[in-house]
């Protein structure tokens, strides 16, 4: 059940690139702008040898991971508190439901003015965007905890706080990791978007913005875009692998729960 998954997903990607190649070679779209993968991939390979480009990629990935880490540190404890204490949850849910639909991108102007064009801005915004899936997954995972698990622990003299760390947290952990998986993509997207808007900040978004001016280097624009997708794909696969490795007990026969 495990081995066919990777080739299957890669086949899907290959199909996508084949369609892209065909679309680009047909007259349906301006081939000058939608450069085919046969052009974009060699460009990507060339760019990966370019230190300036690599520095931009590293800056983007580092900001993404930093934001994700901070989001975990905030959202997991917050989710545990909101999930375990219904009064706290009732009191704060209106705030959460008000903040959550606000797109991180809409906060870019405010963040730029507050934090300037440095990495603080993109990290802060990415943290904001990445918080919610982790927070909600943690919180709702606590709702799903089997009351009998809690009763069993309590009957063996486990205190309230210990029940939280020894029962609630491990039983919520797979859901938290799923939240992290969702949040990685959000974090990456917000970082790149902020780089695109903020202009000056070094990163993949800034590279794409610079390459797109004039429309002459669409192969580089697309190479940067494809790389963003590949980074997200790799991170997702890595986290799925981690889920299977660490939470084997939670993996059902047909895949992740």
């Amino acid at each position: 059940m495990r081995t066919p998954r990777v080739p299957a997903s890669l086949t899907g990607l290959a199909c996508l690139f084949a369609v892209w190649e065909a679309a680009s070679r047909s007259d349906l779209v301006p081939a000058h702008y939608l450069r085919p993968p046969s052009v974009v991939f060699p460009t990507l390979v060339r760019l990966l040898g370019d230190p300036v480009f690599l520095r931009a990629v590293v800056a983007t990935v580092a900001a993404t991971l930093l934001a994700l880490g901070i989001a975990v540190l905030i959202a997991v404890p917050a989710g545990l508190v909101l999930g375990s204490f219904p009064p706290v949850r009732r009191a704060t849910m209106t705030i959460v439901e008000f903040l959550r639909p606000i797109p991180s991108v809409a906060l870019i102007p405010l963040a730029l003015l507050t934090f300037g064009t440095g990495p603080d801005t993109k990290v802060t915004l990415a943290v904001y965007g990445a918080l919610w899936p982790i927070l909600f997954n943690t919180m709702y995972a606590l709702d799903e905890i089997d009351p009998l698990h809690v009763e069993t622990a309590r009957a063996f003299g486990t205190g309230r706080l210990a029940v939280l760390t020894r029962v609630a947290l491990p039983s919520a952990a797979p859901f938290v990791l799923t939240g992290v998986r969702l949040s990685f993509a959000i974090s990456l997207a917000v970082v790149i978007s902020t780089e695109l808007f903020a202009g000056g900040a070094i990163g993949l978004g800034q590279f794409i913005l610079a390459a797109s001016s004039g429309g002459a280097h669409m192969d580089e624009v697309l190479a940067g875009t494809v790389l963003a997708g590949l980074i997200g794909f790799a991170a997702n696969s890595g986290l799925e692998w981690l889920h299977r490795a660490v939470f084997a007990w939670n993996v059902s026969a047909d895949g992740l729960r």
Partner: peptide
């Protein structure tokens, strides 16, 4: 409160054992 010298075995073993351990 919960006495320290007492153990319980519930009917529903599948829900009383911790699946992650």
């Amino acid at each position: 409160g919960v006495p320290s010298e007492l153990a319980v075995v519930f009917q529903d073993y599948s829900r009383s054992l911790f699946p992650w351990l």
